[in-house]
Computed example of a mutant assay.
Amino acid sequence: MRKSVRCGNIIIGGGAPISIQSMTNVDTRDVKNVTEQIRALEEAGCEIVRLAVPDMEAAEAFSLIKKNVKIPLVADIHFDYRLAIAAIKNGADKVRINPGNIGSVDRIKAVVEAAKERNIPIRVGVNSGSLEKDIVKKNGGVTAEGLAESALHNVKLLEDMDFDDIVISLKSSNVRLNYEAHKLIFKQTQHPLHIGITESGTVNSGKLKSAIGIGGLLLAGIGDTMRVSLTGDPVKEVFFARDILKSIGIRSSGINLISCPTCGRTKVDLESIALQVEEAVKKIEPLREAKGLPPITVAVMGCVVNGPGEAKEADFGVAGGDGKGVLFAKGEIVKTVSESMIVDELVNLISNC
Rank of each mutant, 00 (worst) to 15 (best):
V112R: 14
I85P: 02
D80N: 14
N90E: 12
V69K: 01
E113G: 01
S150C: 11
L64I: 02
L157S: 01
H78A: 07
L131N: 09
L147S: 12
D106W: 02
G141S: 02
P72H: 00
R107A: 08
N174A: 09
K171C: 04
V142G: 04
G91T: 12
D165P: 00
G129D: 13
N174M: 13
K66F: 01
G140Y: 04
E132P: 02
I85G: 05
S128R: 04
I102S: 02
L157T: 03
I135L: 12
P99N: 06
I168M: 12
I97D: 00
K94S: 05
V74T: 07
A84L: 14
E132Q: 09
S130D: 05
A84P: 13
N101H: 05
F163V: 08
L152Y: 12
I108L: 13
G91H: 13
N139R: 07
S128F: 05
D106F: 03
G103P: 10
V74W: 02
A61P: 14
V124T: 00
L83T: 01
K89G: 11
N139Y: 15
V155A: 14
L64M: 11
V111K: 05
Y81D: 15
G100T: 10
E159N: 09
F163K: 11
V155Q: 15
I168Y: 05
G125C: 15
L158C: 04
P99V: 07
D165V: 00
D160M: 03
G103C: 12
A86H: 01
I71P: 08
R123N: 07
S172C: 06
L83A: 04
F79S: 06
L64E: 15
D162P: 03
A151W: 00
